[in-house]
Every structure is written in C-alpha cells, then in structure tokens.
Design a protein around this nucleic acid. Sequence first.
DNA 1: GTGAAAGCGCTAACAT
DNA 2: ATGTTAGCGCTTTCAC
Lengths: 338, 338
Amino acid sequence: MAITIKDVAKAANVSIATVSLVMHNHRRISKETKVKVLEIIEQMNYRPSRSARGLVSRRTGNIGFILTNDHFLRTEPFYTHIFIGTEIEARENDFYVLLNTINSDFNERDQLPRFILDRNIDGVIIAGKVPQLLMEKLSHYNFPVVYIDFIPANKNYSTVLVDNVMGGRLATNHLIDLGHKNIAFIGGDIGHPSISDRLTGYMKAIESANLPISPDLIETSENYPARTNGYNAARKLLSVNKNITAIFACNDAMALGVIQYLKDQGKRVPQDVSVMGFDDVVSESSVDPPLCTVRVPTMEMGMEAMKLISTLLKEYEFYPKKIMMPVELVVRQSTQKI
Amino acid sequence: MAITIKDVAKAANVSIATVSLVMHNHRRISKETKVKVLEIIEQMNYRPSRSARGLVSRRTGNIGFILTNDHFLRTEPFYTHIFIGTEIEARENDFYVLLNTINSDFNERDQLPRFILDRNIDGVIIAGKVPQLLMEKLSHYNFPVVYIDFIPANKNYSTVLVDNVMGGRLATNHLIDLGHKNIAFIGGDIGHPSISDRLTGYMKAIESANLPISPDLIETSENYPARTNGYNAARKLLSVNKNITAIFACNDAMALGVIQYLKDQGKRVPQDVSVMGFDDVVSESSVDPPLCTVRVPTMEMGMEAMKLISTLLKEYEFYPKKIMMPVELVVRQSTQKI
DNA sequence: GTGAAAGCGCTAACAT
DNA sequence: ATGTTAGCGCTTTCAC
C-alpha cells in the first residue's frame, strides 16, 4: 500500500489540508510547519496519487502527442527526437506524454486518438503534417494544441517552427564561401512549406552573392524527398548541366541519393562535387564521406512545444505563440574548396 | 463539462450502480436495462473518468515502457516498431503506454523512471538490454514486468524473445540451398545472447549440410554489430580467406558494412559474393542491392508483450511465461545461386 | 496559520 | 434485478 496524504499528516502531526497546502507552496503556511512537513514527505517518500489529484482538479496531467505512423516509423529519427524532447521537458513540468500515431490518410471512418475520446489528456502536441480532417475533428474538443514543424491552415494555433529560410541561406553561403559558382538545389515535395523555404533561402543567398539563378540549377520535380528521389534528381540535373560543382539537397535523405549517383558515375565527393544535406539525421559513420548539413534542433523543438503547452495550461494564456527555432551549419567532409 | 455516470443514470432512469454494473458486464443485470443503458451511453458519448476509476480501483490503466536512449534513438527503427506494437495492443486492452528512456550507463545517482516513483503505472515492459542495476532497483517495487528481446539474469520474469537460432539456420540454409559451400559468419558483440544464438543457428545449419565449420569462416572479434564494424570484419575475413562466396552477417547494419567493403574492393553483390543480414530494419530502397535478410516481427513482439502484461494484470497470473517469436526468411537481391 | 469537511466520479459491498 | 451508500486520495472553501 502506497503512502497517502493521511500518513504524512499523521506523522507530521498536522491536518491533511496543511500537507496539501505545503505541497502547493501556499504562502499562508508558516516556515516551520512547511519545513517539517517537507522533511516528512521526503523521509516517507510520499508521492501524491495522480488519480486523486486528477479527480478533484479535473486535470489528467497527461499531454497527447500525435503524428502519422509513417512519420514515426521512418528511418531517420527526426520525429523520434522530437518526441523524446517532449518527454524530457514533461519531466520538469510533471506531465506524462501519451503517444498516438494516426494513419496518414486519416478519414471519416477513423477514430480520433483514444486519449481525446477518453479525455485523458489536458493538451495536444501535433508533430509534422497531419490531415486537415484530423484538425477539424480535434477542434470540436476544447484542448489547447501546439503544432511542431507544421503550419495549420487555421493560423490561430501555437507552433514551433524551423527557420528553414535561414538554413537554406547557411547551406548555400557555405558553398559560396568555398568558392563554388555553379551551385544546384535539389528538392522533393516542393509544395511543403519547409522545403520551399529552403529553396527560398538558397535563392536569397545566390542573389546576395550576385550569382545567377538558373533553372538548370534547380531540380524540384520529385514528389518526395527520399533517397532514391535524390538519386533520380541528381541524374536529371547532371545529365543536362555539366558545370555543377556543388549540390545542396533539401534534406539528408536526398543528399545520400545524390552522393550515390555521383559515386556510380565515378565522381568523387567532395573532390569533384561538393554535397550538402539538411536536417542532420544521418549518423556520421553511415555515409562516406560524412555529410555536411544543417542541424535542426529536433529535441529542443519537442522541449519548446512542451514548455509552450505547459504555459498555456498553467497560466491560461490561450493566445497563440510562434516559436522559430534557429538552425546551425554542420561542416563535415562532403564539401570542400573548389 | 464532461458527461458523468450520474448524467447517464438520470437519462436512463436507473441508479449509478446499475450503470457501473452494465459497463462491467455484470450478469445480474437484466437484458432490457443493459440494452437501454448501453444505448444511452452510446448516445451521450459517455466515457468513464480514468481518474475516478483509478482512485477506487487502485489501478492507473497505464503501462510503463522502458528502454535505453541509445536503443530508442538509433537509426534503425527496431525499438520504435516494438513500441508502436505495445501501443496498438494497448488500445484493445484499454491501457495507455508511458515511455521513459534511461541512460545506458544507468547508475546509483540516476532516478528510476518517473512513472515508477509516482506509481503511475500498473506494470512495466522493458525492451532490449538494460543495466542490471535498473532491474535490481525495480524489483523493490511490486510491478509485474515483461521483458522483450532480453533475458534478465534472474529468469523469473516473463519474456518475449526472438527465435534467433532458427533465424540463423534459415539464413544459412538459404545460402546452402543456393549452392554455396564457403559461407562465412560475421558477428559483433558475440557475448550478447541474440548474436551468439544466430551463430549457433549458423553452425547447426552448416553441420547439417555436412559442410566444415572453419575458424577462417567465422569472424566475431568486433565488439559492436554496427556498419563500420561489419566493414572491418569483412576486411579481416576476406584478406585471409579468398574462397568465400557468401557472407551471413549477424544483423543488417553489419551486412551494409560488408556490402560496402565488397564494393570498395570492386566485387559485385551478389554476382561475386552473396550477402545476408538479419532483422529486416533496412528499408528496401536504401541499399543496392536490396538486402536479403531475416525478418524479426518487431511490432508483433510489442503486441505480445502487452498481451502478456495485460493477462498478468487481469487474471492475477503471476508465474512467468516465455514467448518465442518466429522469424521469417526475406529473399531479396543480395544473394544468388553460385 | 491551521483544521474540518465537502465533494470530485467511480466501484463494490450491502440492502432491498 | 436494482438501489443506497461508503470511501478511494486529494484540493479547496470556510471556519476558527
């Protein structure tokens, strides 16, 4: 049998009300009793029951985390890191995180995540792109929602975003600084804001350096930014334009495909062509050469989202906030001076 | 304000006790009232409060899931799949899963997972190898524990295991069936039961086929089964033994390293050397050629573990059970007839 | 500054 | 077969 507030009260010779007030740091409690009670709590290793608390406070102390299953299960640990970030921050705020994946083709017949129906959460964090329908259904419930790496159509939400434009600039400027003039951009799923922002960053950097923005340097016809698509994009691009000395791929997966294609063509990376990725989700040892990329602070994004929702919940601040997370250039051996 | 049992009782013109009994499928309830009450529950979309239930039943309805952070964060989604499996099965059993990663060097100063200290779970699932100390500390609490893919020193636990010996046989027999005579085994961290079992399966298959078991066909000196170690192991092996026509790596990561080494040596896979992996965690498109391997039913393992713990909890069956999960040969293009 | 007591939503023993 | 009620552990109002 676990220790209850009664046991603590008895041991401390006070009422259970006093114990409760001490735990909530109430100011009307004298210093002495406070110290005494806290000591006993520590000593008896007392932990309040979440069920009892939840019952009276109408709070579960849980936060729901929703993403699509293909996001969660994809090889690169992008969303896994975000999830861990929420978990770590949850510890500080005394929340628990419940994860629920949904189908990426979420439709009318699909149930909302169980924790919504059960009302077993106080708020929701949604990571990555999710179907419009989910958001609509969700809006019938009154839970605060924070989005990560996704801008919902209805902008009236708090979000944690990546500064993709800045990342695109950083990557491109790095190649420019290395002396490259013919710098290509390879993208997939260019309709996705994150990807098009990276292209924007690329273009801004190219313009700032007074280099030409040429259509035969930009290949964005692939519909998904995966490895094989990177391979194909590189083939399309390089069979047309022979002058390219540097390629900025919109993410690491595509960059791997690009490197593969170059190798298959007998070209050396970075001696013949420099290659940059984006996201920093490829472990250093798994590519040769180690991939130069832009780091996205995934874990920190999860943490920020949890902080946000925690504030929303504790301070009843329901107006939306946007947090833009900075990115960072990670120089590795897949790029070099021309 | 959410619907409560009172609202349902009032609407159905019965007492709250009756509603409760209906929900628990008690036999002393007449068919008519049962139907009526269920209808109203459906209609009002009533969901019982977990907090209230938990308070009286002394059950939280949560299951804790523990693994080390390097397991969770590693690139291959092995443990991610297992986790999802527990989540999916949890839905059937009306549990929620709380994830908590721990440091792989968990020591005296580290806290146990928060859900243990908080007593916010009814049972624990542990996946993969965890430090001995964690298990010891955990044993002071009276939670039922189920292990996945790990055999704790104290065998008195329920576990869900992979039939690695069978997998080793399947892989090796596949190569034998293709006509190979000089089949090598590459392993890392050979002290780990999963890995040594795969070697055992290899040896059994080789013996059964009346082929010789030769030390210059077996390379297990690497201390970790990762890609670069596979590369190195292949180098050691092939620089000594030139006759090898097939290599069975103890997992997919090492197999990737092996393929890399062979390519770097100008050998073709599978024309010159056939390569097999184990685990099936490498997405088909990310290797050339697609890797022939042994599939481990990761998601199903998570599901089985959750079923196990659910049974433990609901039927008070506390004697340990072992579940051995079958594996499956996955033929792809990295192997061929000699 | 501290205590008594009501009540959160539910289960289960007991009453009818 | 159904209803009444005590009580699970806690927060919070109100009294002292």
